[in-house]
Simulated assay, not measured.
Amino acid sequence: MEGCIFNIMKYSIHDGPGIRTTVFMKGCPLTCRWCHNPESQQVDRQAVRFPDRCIGCGKCAEVCTAGAIVIEDKRMRVDIKKCIGCGSCAEVCYAGAVGMAGKAMTSVEVMKEVEKDNIFYEESGGGVTFSGGEPFMQHEFLLEMLKSCKKKGIHTAVDTCGFVRKDILAELSGFIDLFLYDLKMMDDDKHKKYTGVSNELILDNLKELTQLGKRIFIRIPIIPGINDDANLEETGKYLSSINGIEQINLLPYHNISIEKYKRLGEEYSLADIKTPSDDRMDEIAQRLKIFGFKIKIGG
């Protein structure tokens, strides 16, 4: 089976226990305003542009069958709505002004990369983490890789936003050793405003996973002025009302992905928000510790 991958990160130590390989899969049902992997949101491949590298040769425009590229003042201009993500422009651009986010890979090809670091998994208690985007967007492809990992004795973790059909979650959960479960905010209206979807399904799925006895790390992105207020107490109260949450990871906001948005021809709306200080993150950690959870700052 073939899927779309946009990165495979080796020697990862922030996506679950031990040393891991993180497989980043394309596609996400959420459109979080602070998303630091905007290239992950679309399931299909998409063009990534580096305008400063363009030498105005026009090769990209010549091979673009969709008519999405024109050369103006010796620089390329791309109409995102017309781009079909075929990658022809990237193939002929020897200046490196155009690249592609996303690569078609088979499950066998992905597993070959994963297995290269078996010795690190064994010595550190690590394994493979499937992330994204949202891995469940390519659930059939994900299932095939999870089954392969189980056959080979590789520990599996899935980093998920929780917005997934219940039947899909139930089918795959038996092959997942650890859930890294993102919890953005408790207020449903704010959740819709900043992520594009309701949190009802996300909260329901979390309860079901705890009832199944799954190992769960909650991940909370801390976005100053958006979810670092009363939301923290609401989150603590909610999580303490259900059993099975092993720890909470607090992920401080950063805006280092601004350039990614520019390369995709998209606007980043939270550029003015600053990364919370270490003291602020410690304060937030203390506010959640009173609910009895193990708190870790960072992945």
Rank of each mutant, 00 (worst) to 15 (best):
H191W: 08
L178E: 02
Y181F: 14
G292A: 06
G265L: 08
T106L: 08
I5D: 01
I295Q: 04
G102P: 07
G56P: 02
E109R: 11
C83H: 14
L201W: 03
G244R: 13
G225K: 11
A95Y: 13
D228I: 08
S148R: 08
V128K: 01
G16W: 15
M105Y: 08
P252I: 05
I258P: 02
T156H: 02
L180T: 05
N255W: 03
L30S: 13
R77H: 15
K82T: 06
F50N: 05
N243L: 08
E72Y: 12
E91S: 12
A157E: 02
R49G: 00
L250H: 14
R53L: 08
D204P: 00
A66N: 15
N227M: 12
E246M: 09
A61Q: 13
V98Q: 14
A47N: 04
I202F: 06
S257Y: 12
I297Y: 10
L183E: 04
V114K: 03
K10S: 12
C54P: 02
I119Y: 15
R75Q: 11
D272T: 15
N249P: 00
G96A: 10
I84H: 13
M1L: 12
D73N: 15
S12V: 01
K262S: 10
G3V: 04
D79K: 08
F163W: 02
N231I: 00
E122D: 10
F6P: 07
K214G: 01
E123C: 06
G67H: 03
I220V: 11
G3W: 04
I13V: 15
D52F: 14
Y194P: 09
E246A: 10
H155C: 02
L206D: 07
P29V: 10
N199V: 03
L264T: 06
C28R: 12
G18L: 11
D44M: 11
Q211H: 13
A285F: 09
C32D: 10
T65S: 07
D279V: 06
S107R: 07
I245E: 12
A68H: 11
Y11H: 13
R280C: 03
R215P: 00
Q42A: 11
G299A: 12
G133H: 02
E246C: 12
K214C: 07
K74T: 11
E91V: 11
G132L: 01
N227P: 08
Y94G: 00
K103Y: 00
K262P: 02
V48R: 13
I119N: 03
A95P: 06
